[in-house]
């Protein structure tokens, strides 16, 4: 679909360069568009530009190498891990005690910690983020919008270790006055703080989606006598829904991968459960705990962090791909 436009716009500079030089000399040589301007300056040998281009290509290739590196490291160590521990135990056992003498390698307790903290985060970030997106796109004046939008992005720029401090030192003691039975380490407090952190992700991307809804749809709705609220909830939001879903999926993926907040404030107890007042250990917090400890590398105990890392990578990657697909279907629908 875009192939025709792509080839037409891919090298506008080169083709124009040919034209500019071709005119005075009277002969156009399409095959040597790159070297053509050279006769006018008489500088810069083509081979040296070719070397630069290869160097630049190598820079771009670093990102591909990074991906290959991540997959190779995770896959290599995880395969070795599953040579020592049955993959069936990993996926079905309900206890995670790799550092005890009675070893169990069931991922579920860590997964449960990750899901409970991320669930709290989304429960906070979704209503706030969506309301903020509606406010910025449909209600706020352009001036207010240009002021508030970058301010919201500040929320995502605060280092996570700082958020961890807030969760543990400030929020948990406050919540203990309100929520009965809340332990000093719990999933609720880091979950709420994580929600604040990922809220700008939802507000910013949802605002883009809402903003992209054609004005004609709103005008048609007003023309039929609908109020502004009805237009927002019956016309604009339904039209933007896959764009909004993409933003929420990305935010959830960010929450699942978040490490320091939960490592500081959620505790270090693997627990299979759903009560956010209890301490939990997330997948990410477990990786940090083992890294801080003095377990020898190359042991099965140490390899657990690569197996957990692989599970984390697969989860976040599939959510990111889903978000991309949702965003693409949204753009396609418009």
């Amino acid at each position: 679909m875009t192939a025709a436009t792509a080839s037409a716009t891919s090298e506008p500079s080169a083709s124009l360069g040919t034209g500019a030089v071709g005119d005075p000399s009277g002969a156009v040589e399409p095959a040597v568009g790159d070297e053509d301007p050279r006769p006018l300056t008489g500088r810069a040998a083509p081979w040296h530009e070719r070397v630069i281009e290869i160097g630049l290509f190598a820079c771009a290739g670093v990102s591909v190498l990074t991906t290959i590196g991540i997959v190779a490291v995770l896959l290599g160590e995880t395969l070795q891990f599953f040579g020592e521990v049955s993959i069936l135990d990993f996926l079905t056992d309900t206890q995670w005690t790799p550092l005890f003498s009675d070893k169990h390698f069931g991922i579920w307790p860590l997964l449960s910690g990750t899901l409970v903290t991320s669930g709290v985060a989304i429960a906070v970030a979704l209503p706030f983020g969506l309301l903020a997106a509606i406010y910025l796109s449909e209600i706020a004046s352009p001036r207010v919008r240009s002021l508030v939008k970058p301010s919201l992005e500040l929320l995502a720029g605060v280092p996570t270790v700082v958020y961890g401090y807030f969760a543990l030192v400030t929020l948990t003691p406050l919540l203990q006055h309100v929520v009965p039975g809340l332990s000093g380490f719990n999933a609720l407090s880091p979950g709420i703080v994580m929600g604040v952190m990922i809220m700008p992700l939802i507000s910013s991307l949802s605002e883009d989606a809402i903003h992209a809804v054609p004005q004609s749809l709103r005008e048609a709705s007003y023309g039929l006598g609908a109020s502004k609220l009805a237009t927002i909830f019956r016309v604009v939001l339904p039209t933007a829904r896959s764009g909004i879903a993409a933003s929420v999926t990305l935010a959830a993926s960010r929450a699942i991968g978040e490490t320091m907040i939960v490592a500081i404030a959620a505790g270090q107890q693997p627990r299979l459960g759903i009560d956010p007042r209890q301490p939990f250990e997330t997948m990410t917090a477990y990786i940090v705990k083992v890294s801080l400890g003095d377990i020898a590398t190359g042991t099965t105990e140490f390899r657990t962090i690569f197996a957990v890392g692989s599970a984390l990578f697969v989860m976040t990657l599939s959510m990111n791909l889903l978000a991309m697909r949702l965003a693409r279907s949204f753009r396609g629908a418009l």
Partner: peptide, 25 residues
């Protein structure tokens, strides 16, 4: 386009995974 898609995916990889990459490589 492949590199672009790859960069978009890398931007979503949790930072702790980069730690595992750094440790291994």
């Amino acid at each position: 386009r492949i590199i672009e898609l790859n960069i978009a995916n890398l931007a979503g990889v949790p930072s702790v995974i980069y730690g595992l990459l750094g440790l291994g490589v």
